[in-house]
Simulated scan of single mutants.
Amino acid sequence: MDDRQPLPGRRGLLSKVPGRLPIYSIGIYTGPSPLALASPATGLANPVLTRESVTDHYASFIADPFMIRAGGSWHMFFEALNWEGSRRKGEIAHAVSADAFHWSYQGVVLAEPFHLSYPYVFEWQSERYMIPESSEAGAVRLYRAQRFPDRWTFVKDLLVGPVHLDSSIFHRDGRWWLLTNTDEERGTLHLFHATELLGPWVEHPRSPVVRSDLALGRPAGRVISVGDRLLRFAQDCRQAYGASVAAVEITRLTPTEYEERPLAERPVLAGTGQGWNRVGMHHLDAHQLEDGSWIACVDGWLDRFRRPRELAAWAADHARRLMSS
């Protein structure tokens, strides 16, 4: 996600008010299905990670968590919005856990001159890869873990273009697929596919598979298989960015065909009206456990007045913009 510039439609009404800031935090939800997740009643105090967890820089929020299990531990990667210096941007941070309930922050593992978020991490042929949102660089960039989990090497651009937001990759029926939002203001979702991870990638003949739909056009986490079913999650941004998450079943997927259907009228995740996710929730990454139950890292947000240093940074940045315009 990108909350550095308060543009209309991007973060809803709250983000357009200089004195207020959406504060995202990360929690863990569990349940019998990825469509029936909730905060555990016992054994866990959500949120499990907040901006105060970040110790190597001043983060105004953390969001977009993805998990992967490796070496007997759970590893979580997420955006930490670095508010230090003259140029605020997202960086990819890492935390580790033995049980996926209690997390220890480890530090930033990937930073670039441009903004990064949505670190979609996955494993393929004993290698671990990451596709963070890097639209500011003009490409969908693939990284490989040179030394997991703290050293990542750029491999190649999978797609090149001005806007590719929250790109979500998955492997199905011997082929790679990638969903990416190309117009966040109007909710347009494109589909690409390739026989090999490194490509070449081509656009699906039915793409865009979602046109001008703010309820379904922007990805909200990992695409998952549940038995024979294939599910994707979408941010519902009709009222405001980050309001809730909807579930969509992909019912037909071939190199020439694509069909999907929303699964329920009620969102899978939404603001609770209190606490760390009072206003909204906009992301989930669900994993099935050995006993058949599901666990997911999620994020949620509340609105809060900006801290003095945030207001000072905003005022200085605003003054620079006025002088250069």
Results as ranks from 00 to 15, higher is better:
8 P>H: 02
174 G>V: 12
80 A>H: 02
39 S>G: 03
268 V>K: 06
317 D>V: 00
186 R>Y: 08
91 E>V: 13
11 R>E: 01
184 E>C: 00
311 L>W: 13
55 T>D: 07
252 R>K: 14
140 V>A: 06
255 P>L: 06
159 L>H: 10
146 Q>E: 15
18 P>Q: 02
27 G>W: 06
57 H>Y: 09
89 K>Y: 07
185 E>N: 01
207 S>Y: 10
265 E>I: 05
321 R>K: 13
116 L>C: 02
57 H>E: 06
73 S>C: 11
85 G>A: 07
154 F>A: 03
324 S>M: 14
230 L>C: 12
58 Y>R: 14
226 V>P: 07
302 L>F: 13
20 R>M: 15
106 Q>Y: 02
133 E>F: 08
302 L>H: 15
81 L>D: 11
10 R>P: 00
116 L>S: 01
221 G>P: 14
29 Y>M: 09
69 R>I: 00
103 W>G: 06
315 A>H: 02
90 G>W: 06
127 E>P: 00
229 R>P: 03
190 H>W: 02
235 Q>N: 12
117 S>N: 03
13 L>C: 03
319 A>Q: 05
292 G>Q: 14
164 H>W: 15
321 R>T: 07
299 D>Q: 13
91 E>T: 10
232 R>F: 12
139 A>Y: 05
139 A>P: 07
257 E>L: 12
102 H>R: 15
320 R>F: 06
120 Y>S: 08
213 D>Q: 13
147 R>A: 14
65 P>V: 00
265 E>R: 11
289 L>G: 01
122 F>P: 04
220 A>Q: 14
203 E>Q: 09
163 V>D: 13
204 H>T: 06
192 F>R: 00
5 Q>R: 08
133 E>R: 06
202 V>R: 11
194 A>H: 05
97 S>H: 05
249 E>N: 12
38 A>H: 09
271 G>R: 04
143 Y>E: 04
155 V>D: 00
39 S>K: 03
68 I>Y: 02
156 K>A: 15
286 A>D: 05
264 A>K: 07
283 H>E: 12
211 R>Q: 14
322 L>W: 14
276 W>Y: 11
256 T>V: 03
298 V>E: 07
201 W>K: 00
160 V>H: 04
112 E>G: 01
155 V>Y: 01
267 P>S: 10
193 H>W: 15
209 V>H: 02
110 L>Y: 06
77 F>K: 02
139 A>L: 10
245 V>K: 06
18 P>C: 02
155 V>K: 04
56 D>F: 06
240 A>H: 14
116 L>E: 03
136 E>V: 08
160 V>W: 01
143 Y>T: 02
187 G>T: 04
212 S>Y: 10
29 Y>V: 09
215 A>R: 15
